[in-house]
């Protein structure tokens, strides 16, 4: 978790982002809503969520995104810098679902004193439904300083 450093030279197009498995609970949803001052009832009031047609309370949009960001930062290590990130919410998730965040490097390029890698990301549930596609751009340190 967030300890080993990844260097730019270790990564190429096709390298996989180490999968991260998350199991959101009602307690997690409550604490995330409290922390983000999100009082939308679909996240903590099951009868209300059902009145909107959902089977249970829903994992917050931003928690899906946070899971994907966690996967990227764990994989890239503490010296990496995330410079860009996006995700889209496509399918709902509820407490008890098992969400796996994974990804693949789709682009690498040298920068000024570092290297940039871009990853396509996916968060899927235990039925392999795509809950949230995403993307990240991360600056990685170079194993060897470029000669000037």
């Amino acid at each position: 978790m967030g300890q080993a450093n990844l260097f730019f030279e270790d990564v190429k197009v096709g390298t996989t982002v180490t999968p991260l498995v998350k199991r959101p609970s009602t307690v997690q949803l409550f604490r995330f809503s409290a922390m983000t001052w999100n009082s939308h009832k679909i996240h903590y009031d099951k009868p209300y969520a059902q009145s909107e047609g959902y089977p249970d309370v829903l994992v917050q949009s931003h928690l899906h995104g946070s899971f994907l960001a966690q996967a990227v930062m764990d994989w890239a290590g503490p010296s990496a810098r995330m410079v860009g990130f996006r995700w889209q919410n496509r399918a709902i998730a509820c407490p008890g679902d098992v969400l796996t965040c994974a990804g693949t490097v789709v682009k690498t390029e040298m920068g000024d004193g570092c290297g940039y890698v871009e990853c396509e990301l996916e968060e899927r549930n235990q039925r392999n439904q795509l809950c949230a596609p995403g993307w990240a751009r991360v600056a990685l340190a170079l194993r060897t300083e470029p000669s000037k």
């Binding site: 949009s61 931003h62 995104g65 860009g84 990130f85 996006r86 889209q88 949230a132």
Partner: peptide, 8 residues
């Protein structure tokens, strides 16, 4: 929520 696009 539909998602975000972020620049850090």
């Amino acid at each position: 929520g539909g998602g975000q696009e972020l620049e850090f």
